[in-house]
Simulated assay, not measured.
Amino acid sequence: MSLNTLAAGEDELLPADYVNRLLNGENALCVYRDLRGMTQAALAEKAGVNRVTVAEIETGRKQGSVATLRALANALGVSLDDLAD
């Protein structure tokens, strides 16, 4: 990350409490969804997936297909790598 990519909006800084949640092993989808202030239903609608799918991925019951994770990442404005465990 550089100041240029930050200024261009290509990178973002995460508040420490969200970073700590990620470092403590909380599901990345849940953390980024919360960071964006979205409900599961709002994220599901924006990504074009079922809300139950979002819930199952967040709780670890399902991993989600690459296509589903890509749609969720796009809806959250993060990379697919950001959602990967």
Rank of each mutant, 00 (worst) to 15 (best):
C30Q: 15
T59A: 12
Q40C: 10
A7R: 11
T39M: 04
D85Y: 00
R61K: 11
R36S: 02
A71W: 06
G60M: 09
D11F: 01
E12A: 10
G25W: 10
V49M: 04
A8Y: 06
L23I: 12
N50W: 13
L23G: 10
D85R: 04
M1C: 08
D85N: 03
D85A: 11
A55D: 03
K62F: 13
A16H: 12
M38L: 15
D34C: 08
Q63S: 11
N24S: 14
S79Q: 11
D34K: 14
Y32D: 07
T39K: 04
E10F: 12
T5G: 05
L83G: 04
L29D: 07
E10V: 15
A71M: 09
L69M: 10
L35C: 05
V19R: 08
T59P: 06
A44E: 03
G77I: 05
A71E: 00
A28L: 00
E26W: 06
A75L: 10
T68V: 14
R21M: 08
L13T: 10
A44D: 01
T53F: 01
L6N: 02
L83Y: 02
A42H: 06
Y18C: 14
A47H: 00
A42K: 11
E12M: 12
R70M: 09
R61V: 15
R36M: 03
G77N: 02
L14R: 02
Y32F: 14
Q63P: 00
G37D: 01
N27L: 08
S79V: 00
G37H: 03
R36P: 00
E26N: 06
T39F: 09
A41K: 13
T5S: 15
L3E: 07
L13Q: 14
V31L: 04
E10K: 15
P15T: 09
C30D: 15
D81E: 14
G64D: 01
N4P: 01
D34A: 12
A7H: 03
N27Q: 07
L72M: 12
A41W: 10
E12D: 04
A67G: 09
Q63T: 13
A28H: 03
E56G: 02
T5H: 11
E45M: 14
T68W: 06
S79Y: 05
D34R: 15
V66G: 10
A8V: 04
S2T: 13
N20Y: 12
G64F: 03
L83C: 09
V19T: 08
T53Y: 04
A71H: 07
V49A: 05
E12R: 02
D11Q: 12
N4R: 12
L76T: 09
N27D: 09
A75D: 01
K46S: 11
T5R: 11
A55F: 02
I57Q: 06
D34E: 15
K46Q: 13
V49H: 01
K46Y: 07
V66F: 13
S2D: 06
D17T: 13
M38E: 03
P15R: 07
N27F: 03
R21P: 00
R51Q: 13
E56W: 07
